[in-house]
Nucleic acid binder design. Structure first.
Length: 672
DNA sequence: GTGGATGAG
DNA sequence: CGCTCATCCAC
């Protein structure tokens, strides 16, 4: 095979090595063949792979500066209560940092502009920028920043229809330039499209020599090969201005991969320019062969800049770096490694053989081993545009001691969740959280939580969410309250989980009775079976199989109509002609009010069901991409490790696990 | 499915 | 610091 597996070569190479040599980095200078260039599916093994990480400079501060139309040169910070959550670059010149209090900052720079984040307060449906937000009564909202972030991501996608985009956080995205860059290479060097007749090995012949000089984008910094950066995390460390043309750096010949990097740099610069002119945000980007290096490169020079790390520059770039700064090594695992070998830099760890590391930290250490050598095979993978959960959380400077205060905060949190879900539905139709969860933390104790199914509803109101939250609150705190145990709640979190676009026939009226009126437990099997029966039939709503369908009146704006029979709590849907009846457990109740309420709910939920189905039908024809794209996998570390552990292609076998359960790396990613 | 722990930004 | 989000795992 022309494409040699880096994994194989790395592990084969390392038997018994005690000192790192240039050979360690053979992966960094692969031979590139016509097959490589012409192939479309090499993925992470593509030797011409080019990845960028682009992040917004002092994002929250920039959002406020843009929102308020402030001149970008004025020092500005975003505050949350008394502390700072974002400091723009002009303000940093005054020595202001995120750890400062608002008072300190103002003292350092009297002209400083302080903007408080938007907050929710009880009774308001939307967050606002109030005069005197108080942490005792308000809750911060990051909504505006989320929306601005979405705009930026959208511009990446529009500017690069061929590139894969992965939103990494609210202010960062990875971009896979491999495909657009390859297209451009073939356009600029058309002779590469044809394998020459005299090529010794056909498609597996190496490409002809690349150009000896590269015209780097003028706004791009090229990380030098020989001279390692003064500090790995040299954020804004005044590095000399770059030249318009960089010749082959220090005699290191250009490669086709360098050509690829330079094209990516042009594309990246163009998009960043666009983002600035259209949205007003400056960004910093890193461009390199994989996500890991791209991420480091992005902070090589900030703000409003971009940096390229050529493969040849990687060894010296990584060697002096404190490895605990590397993503996923910042926690317990990094600490354990540091202590085990009593070292701190990447260079220190290069002397550790793969076998040694795996013996100590398990099979999966191959991931760390390769990262240290500039290898990172994680993919740039678009994440689902909506997150699977939504959390609104509030720390209570003044602990809650009675339940009435609980209801207050739940209402505030519910308002936020309701708004966010509503907004999310603007993008993805028929979104529905399967559960609602309430977490509380008391003092030092570990937090407890309760969850419950959340009914589908077309209209997400504060009341709906708050009442669900209140029930959970009663479950959690009610016991304590009634026992008259004093409680001090220091944190409250309300969240939606299991958010998905509604699949038809999912949820009906069950939750209403069970949760609102306590009917469920007494007649659980009965009401449950009823529900399922009606669902099963609802799955084929087009079939007008109800004998009484003709009695339905079709002239209403509603899709359903009540049957005028007072003894029977049922109705026939005008759309699917299906009769829906209240569960037995409910009709046996005395309370007319509840039964009427139940009818309304039943009808509303049935309408909602049709509504959701309609929407999901539209969306599936609107966005065929979703069906065509490969399924998104959990990604990240676990899967990367999985692939390594199994040789790159096969599924993970059961047997791999016992080995590392004991002292393996695995335990550092979970609880001890 | 639930509930807790951990980590990143 | 305070807040949001994701993943993993034991139960």
């Amino acid at each position: 095979m022309a494409t040699t597996s880096p994994r194989k070569s790395a592990s084969a190479l390392w038997k018994g090595k005690t000192k790192s040599t240039l050979q360690d980095y053979e992966d960094l200078n692969p031979t590139i063949t016509y097959r490589h260039l012409h192939s479309h599916n090499l993925g992470v093994k593509d030797p011409l792979r080019v990845i960028a990480l682009c992040d917004s400079d002092a994002f929250y501060a920039a959002c406020e500066q843009v929102r308020l139309g402030i001149d970008p040169s004025v020092p500005l910070v975003v505050q949350q209560w008394d502390s700072l959550i974002a400091v723009n670059y002009p303000a940093r010149k005054f020595g202001i940092s995120r750890m400062d209090r608002a008072k300190e900052a103002k003292k350092r720079c009297p002209e400083l502009m302080l903007v408080h984040v938007a907050t929710f307060k009880e009774g308001e449906k939307e967050p606002g920028y109030w005069e005197n937000p108080d942490s005792l009564t308000h809750k911060v909202s990051l909504d505006h920043y989320r929306r601005e972030s979405t705009k930026i991501i959208q511009m990446f996608k529009e500017g690069l229809p061929e590139g894969e985009i992965e939103r990494a956080s609210i202010d960062e995205a990875f971009i896979d330039f491999t495909r657009p860059v390859r297209d451009e290479i073939l356009k600029r060097y058309p002779h590469l499209a044809q394998v020459p007749d005299n090529a010794p090995n056909g498609k597996d012949s190496p490409l002809p020599p690349p150009p000896t000089q590269i015209l780097w984008n003028e706004k791009t910094t090229i990380v030098p090969i020989s001279l390692p950066p003064p500090d790995c995390a040299a954020e804004g460390s005044g590095i000399a201005e770059t030249k318009v043309v960089q010749e082959t750096d220090e005699g290191e010949p250009c490669t086709w991969h360098d050509v690829a990097l330079s094209i990516a740099a042009e594309l990246m610069a163009k998009i960043r320019d666009d983002i600035y002119s259209k949205l007003g945000y400056t960004t910093s980007a890193g461009i390199a062969r994989n996500k890991f290096i791209a991420k480091l490169a992005a902070s090589y020079r900030k703000p409003n800049s971009q940096s390229v790390v050529r493969n040849a520059a990687i060894p010296n770039y990584l060697r002096p770096m404190a490895f605990q700064k590397i993503r996923y090594l910042g926690g317990k695992l990094g600490k354990a490694i540091a202590e085990e070998y009593d070292v701190s830099t990447v260079g220190d760890l290069l002397t550790i053989t793969l076998e040694e590391m795996q013996h100590k930290f398990g099979e999966e250490s191959i991931w760390v081993y390769e990262i240290l050598r500039g290898i990172d095979r994680s993919e740039v993978k678009e994440k689902p545009s909506v997150t699977k959960s939504m959390l609104a959380s509030k720390n209570l400077p003044q602990p809650i001691v009675q339940t009435s205060q609980g209801h207050h905060w739940i209402r505030v949190l519910a308002a936020e969740l309701a708004l966010r879900l509503k907004e999310a539905r603007e993008a993805v139709p028929a979104l529905w959280p399967k559960s609602i969860v309430l977490h509380i933390r008391q003092g030092y104790e570990t937090s407890r939580s309760k969850q419950a199914p959340f009914p589908f509803s077309r209209e997400i109101t504060v009341d709906l969410v708050a009442s669900a939250g209140d029930k959970l609150w009663k479950d959690l705190v009610g016991a304590e309250g009634s026992r008259k145990t004093p409680f001090k709640i220091t944190n409250v979190q309300l969240s939606f989980s299991g958010i998905e676009s509604m699949a038809p026939g999912q949820r009906s009226i069950e939750g209403f009775f069970k949760d609102s009126h306590g009917v469920g437990p007494s007649t659980p099997s009965k009401s449950k079976r009823k529900r399922e029966d009606s669902d099963d039939e609802s799955t084929v709503p087009r079939n007008a199989d109800s004998p009484r369908a003709s009695s339905a009146r079709g002239d209403s704006a509603d899709t359903t109509a009540l049957v005028a029979s007072s003894s029977l709590y049922s109705f026939v849907c005008t759309q699917c002609h299906k009769r829906l009846t209240l569960p037995g457990g409910v009709t046996e109740l005395e309370d007319e009010e509840i039964k009427n309420e139940a009818m309304i709910t039943l009808r509303q939920e049935h309408d909602d069901w049709h509504f959701a189905q309609e929407l999901s039908r539209q969306s599936s024809s609107d966005q065929p991409r979703l069906a065509i794209r490969p399924p998104s996998h959990p990604s990240k570390l676990a899967n990367v490790n999985e692939r390594f552990a199994t040789g790159g292609k096969k599924r993970l076998k059961e047997k791999a696990k016992p080995d590392m359960s004991d002292k393996g790396i695995a335990k550092f990613f979970s609880k001890p």
